[in-house]
Design a protein around this nucleic acid. Sequence first.
DNA 1: TTGTAACTCCGGGATTTCCCCGAAGGTGAC
DNA 2: GTCACCTTCGGGGAAATCCCGGAGTTACAA
Lengths: 179, 179
Amino acid sequence: MVRTGLKLLLQSRGYGVVGEASNGEAALALVAELQPDLLLLDLAMPGGPDGLQVTAQLRQRGFATPIVVISMYDEEALRQAAIKAGANAFVLKQAPETDLLDAIARSLPTLSSPILTARESEILRWLAEGYGNKDIAGRLNISVKTVETHRAHLFLKLGLQNRADLVRYAISQGFFQPG
Amino acid sequence: MVRTGLKLLLQSRGYGVVGEASNGEAALALVAELQPDLLLLDLAMPGGPDGLQVTAQLRQRGFATPIVVISMYDEEALRQAAIKAGANAFVLKQAPETDLLDAIARSLPTLSSPILTARESEILRWLAEGYGNKDIAGRLNISVKTVETHRAHLFLKLGLQNRADLVRYAISQGFFQPG
DNA sequence: TTGTAACTCCGGGATTTCCCCGAAGGTGAC
DNA sequence: GTCACCTTCGGGGAAATCCCGGAGTTACAA
């Protein structure tokens, strides 16, 4: 449940979640299998190795995967232990989500999403809101043809096929909420 | 952070989140102020009254607000205490999100959305996925005209204007995830 | 039995919108 | 200068949309 919530949070900010594990054993196996760009790890896990041990294990096995550790307890000792074990960041569960997103962003310096020009982003918003090419052209005082060109570039850059994809992409990027 | 995740999870299923509180005091005040349709309550909260106490307090004050309690610990005594205090459901944090959604659905019996026929729901899915009328007609072995009829009915019933609205509606109803 | 209403299916025809092709001017980098 | 990119635009064909309209089925009520 909590994992699903976090997953949605991450997806809403444009991150893809390639795997989930409910315990330390599974986490270790999954990291080896999926080679993710980043690992989000809860210190407290049921049975088996806890977050600290998973972190240490991964580092011992040579994985450089950035690790962001989440903890329910705000104790300096825990923080230092996590960092010492090899974690890149330590975030409290009680902290606002911006803390987590900042920590992830800091730990993921090189990831980039397709780069859209200002005009393309603008038109993406309108398209995803459901406006037709003609409406958008009117608002921006350009021709329908120009809007179509930008739309085509959006499809190309984002690898999308249709407007529904565009809506989902915009939602996943946090442009707005579905409801 | 966790609250934001849960919020997204709920929103992705069509529920609106009208308020959030980080402790028991604030929760009590917010429920009185906002009169929500349902209260999602963590048993463990920092300082002040915990989830059990908040539940009991609300019932003593005459609030009939359905309460779904979330707990990290799978102990029968806790479950019984929560129910006895007046909670409508008890869900474990480790449980899959469907448990939470089921519990909420059970506690919110009277909420309804527009009634779609089987065919309409089917076509809504395809439309929201981004398929064209022609594709859908081919898949379902019906004519494009029929697809258009169902689409028109969907717009009428749901009060929507365009396909983007349809996508957002489908997402908000949990037909699929945006990402 | 006879409406009658809802669902599902389909067509014609006019209109609008979308989509794929190419292309031209401007800007900035090398 | 050349090259890449952004932004702008048009032609032409495909698709979707928006008006109508009707027909067969089921189900339920008068």
